[in-house]
Design a protein around this nucleic acid. Sequence first.
DNA 1: CATACTGTAATCATAATTAATACAGTTAGT
DNA 2: ACTAACTGTATTAATTATGATTACAGTATG
Lengths: 139, 139
Amino acid sequence: MNSEFTIAVHSLVYLTHLPGHMASSESIAANVSTHPARIRKVMGCLRKHGFVKTKEGIGGGYILDCDPDEITLAQVYRAVSCGSFKPSWCTGDPEQTCPVSSNAQRVMDQIFADAEAYFETYFARITIRSVLEKIKQCP
Amino acid sequence: MNSEFTIAVHSLVYLTHLPGHMASSESIAANVSTHPARIRKVMGCLRKHGFVKTKEGIGGGYILDCDPDEITLAQVYRAVSCGSFKPSWCTGDPEQTCPVSSNAQRVMDQIFADAEAYFETYFARITIRSVLEKIKQCP
DNA sequence: CATACTGTAATCATAATTAATACAGTTAGT
DNA sequence: ACTAACTGTATTAATTATGATTACAGTATG
């Protein structure tokens, strides 16, 4: 699992926590604890999917452009980390005559794809707002 | 997601496909397409959990010691890759005063743990036998 | 036109993963 | 008892993936 998903969720929660404010990549990076260039990369992706608006130049930055009560982690996952559940390493060898070896790769791929679709239905129940609420309830 | 889970599933399917036979780490490795030492490591874990039996010495190797109609991918996942869903990278910084930054880590950890428990219920519906059946149905 | 931003690509450093090696311990056959 | 063919396990080396950093072109504002 890719950590860009974590960064995207954290950034959206942070913007929700600062309603109406522009936040620069630098201030988001400080909150998330990473490098501003990494934030800009992830935010570019969120902008393409309509979750945030961007402003370049002086006083620019990022601002929320969606309803945090509507946006779910499933949408964020699909935007940023779709397909990252499956490990990159592949089992078996399609050239072998043994049906187990030659088909294991394809069947495992299908299992991982289905599992990903399945846990997305869990993420679909969690909104950005609800993540912020959980954070606020921490002691 | 850890590829040792993939190796464990493939190995168990392979042993199911060869009922009553001992398979050496070398022959399993050839089928899976990896190094025998890696197979021995994963199989050691499966033995500790009672999925396979081991025989050392000449003519030794691994043999299935469970009912492939009963064993599910959830059990294999827990034995081999439990907790691997959560990315190792951590967001936020517990030392900061902003509640979003200081608590994001804990809340995301909980979300990943819950998501893992959730997709395990999907894996619980897939048996080793059913994986073998899927493989046999490939063209 | 200087300043403070984003967008994006490229490079460097580090961490994680996989492969390979090595060797002690075990079993079976002779 | 000895040898051959295995597992168990640790260690090291190679490869790959990830994250941090740098760099610079493009854009908006005063």
